[in-house]
Simulated scan of single mutants.
Amino acid sequence: MLSLLAPLLLAQATPAATAPVPPLDALTGQIEAADGALFWAAFEACDPPAVERLLAEDFRMLHDKGGLVASSRAKFIAQMERECAARAPGGAHAGYANRRLAVPGSRTVRPLGRWGALEEGAHVFFERRADGAWEMVGGARYQNVWRWMPREGRLRLVESLSYDHGAAAAYPPEGAEP
């Protein structure tokens, strides 16, 4: 019996291979992809399971308008599930759709030692009007802390800070020629 268990015990005693934090270019690419997937799933797809896969268990979100929005991944996902249900046919906000776009050129990524990275940038928000067109309704800045998960070989969002929310910028800008 012991001879049958030996390989299993040896496998458990041997540490699993872990991937190091990638170099900055690769790290930035992974963060851009994860950020895009996160906001697509959260805003347009209304897909809580997809968002859950991108968040660390101890995820928390701070927002200048709402304070501590979520103190854990579970609480954030539960809140998102309620919001998605409200958008569904028959829900209190049936048909509501919104979109978030990162402002091109505003994103910076800085490694945080061997355990993660800090992403900073600006984003703008849109809502779909009754005629189907998208209307920019505001903008803000953000800082996201991504934790490197060496056994998974990928990043998970551990903390998000969203601040400086304001009205949409005038468009076209003052003084621009049509």
Score class of each variant (00 low, 15 high):
S72Q: 13
G105R: 00
W115G: 12
F126D: 07
R60V: 09
Q79D: 14
A16R: 06
L62K: 00
F43K: 08
P173A: 15
Q143L: 15
E152L: 12
A170S: 13
P7Q: 04
E119M: 01
E57C: 13
E52F: 06
E81R: 15
V145D: 03
R128Q: 15
S106P: 01
V124Q: 01
R82S: 15
R107G: 01
E119L: 00
F126H: 09
T18Y: 00
E159R: 07
R110A: 09
R60N: 07
A41R: 04
T28D: 04
S71F: 13
L118D: 03
E120L: 01
R156P: 02
E177P: 02
M136V: 12
R128C: 12
Y142D: 01
G175H: 00
Q30D: 15
R73N: 10
A117S: 09
L8P: 03
P22Y: 11
D64G: 12
E83R: 10
F43Y: 14
F126R: 04
G175Y: 02
M1V: 07
P23L: 14
L10K: 01
Q79W: 09
A70K: 06
M149T: 05
L112K: 05
A34V: 00
D64S: 13
P178K: 12
G105S: 01
L157Y: 03
M1L: 05
P7C: 07
A41P: 00
L24H: 05
G116L: 10
W146L: 11
Q143H: 11
N98T: 10
C46T: 08
P150L: 10
P15I: 13
P172R: 12
A102V: 06
E135M: 14
E159H: 10
Q79P: 05
S3W: 00
L2P: 01
R110P: 01
T18A: 13
L24I: 07
R99C: 04
L112Q: 09
D64L: 11
A140D: 03
A19P: 01
H165R: 03
E135C: 12
P111M: 14
E120H: 02
H165L: 00
S162F: 06
A167I: 09
V69G: 11
M1P: 01
V145N: 03
M1R: 04
S162L: 04
T14V: 10
V158F: 09
F39M: 08
L55A: 09
A133T: 15
A42C: 02
F59I: 10
R99Q: 08
R107I: 02
V137H: 05
L2W: 00
V21P: 03
R110H: 07
E81W: 12
G29W: 05
R73L: 09
Q12Y: 11
A94N: 01
A170G: 11
E177N: 06
T18F: 06
A85N: 11
A86C: 11
A50M: 07
G67L: 11
L55V: 02
E177A: 13
E127Y: 03
E177Y: 08
G139H: 05
R128M: 13
P23C: 13
C84S: 14
R53Y: 07
E174N: 09
Y96L: 14
